[in-house]
Deep mutational scan, measured.
Amino acid sequence: KMTIRVKGKELARRIAKEMKDRNLKVEIHEHGDEVILEIE
């Protein structure tokens, strides 16, 4: 399990899509400006 902190929703969406393309499970937690992606 891996956690990534990202500034900006646009970048977070791009990373999430990339991870889904690799068949990984992604959970997205938004905290205002910061987005936390949990990847399994």
Rank of each mutant, 00 (worst) to 15 (best):
E10K: 11
L37Q: 01
T3G: 02
L24E: 02
I4T: 02
M2G: 03
K9C: 15
M19Y: 13
T3R: 13
E10T: 09
V26Y: 05
A16E: 06
K9Q: 09
R14P: 00
E30Q: 09
H29P: 00
V35T: 08
L37N: 00
E30S: 07
K17S: 07
L11S: 03
E34Y: 15
V35P: 01
R13F: 13
R22H: 07
V6Q: 01
H29L: 11
K7T: 08
K20I: 12
N23Q: 07
K1Q: 06
L11G: 01
A12P: 00
M19C: 08
M2E: 04
K7L: 11
R22K: 09
H31D: 14
E18Y: 15
G8F: 09
I36T: 07
R5V: 12
I36G: 00
K17G: 05
T3D: 01
N23I: 03
G32N: 07
V35I: 14
D21A: 14
E18W: 15
R5N: 04
I4G: 01
L24F: 14
R5Y: 10
L11M: 08
E34N: 08
D21S: 13
E40M: 13
H31N: 13
K7I: 11
H29F: 14
E10F: 10
K7N: 07
L24C: 11
I15P: 00
E38G: 03
V6K: 02
R22D: 02
R5A: 04
E27L: 13
D21L: 14
V6Y: 04
D21M: 13
L24Y: 14
I39Y: 05
K17N: 08
E10S: 10
K20V: 09
R14A: 09
E18R: 14
M19K: 01
K1T: 08
V35K: 02
V6L: 08
K25Q: 09
R14F: 05
H29M: 10
E40G: 11
K17T: 07
I28W: 15
E18P: 00
H31F: 14
E40S: 15
A12F: 03
V35L: 09
E27A: 12
L37Y: 02
R14E: 05
K17I: 07
I36C: 11
L24K: 04
L11W: 05
R13S: 10
I15Q: 00
R22E: 03
M2Y: 13
E10W: 13
H29S: 08
E18A: 15
K20N: 09
A12W: 04
K17M: 10
M2L: 13
R13D: 09
E10Q: 10
H29R: 12
E30L: 11
N23L: 07
H31W: 13
A12I: 02
A12T: 01
D21W: 10
D21K: 15
D33N: 08
V26M: 03
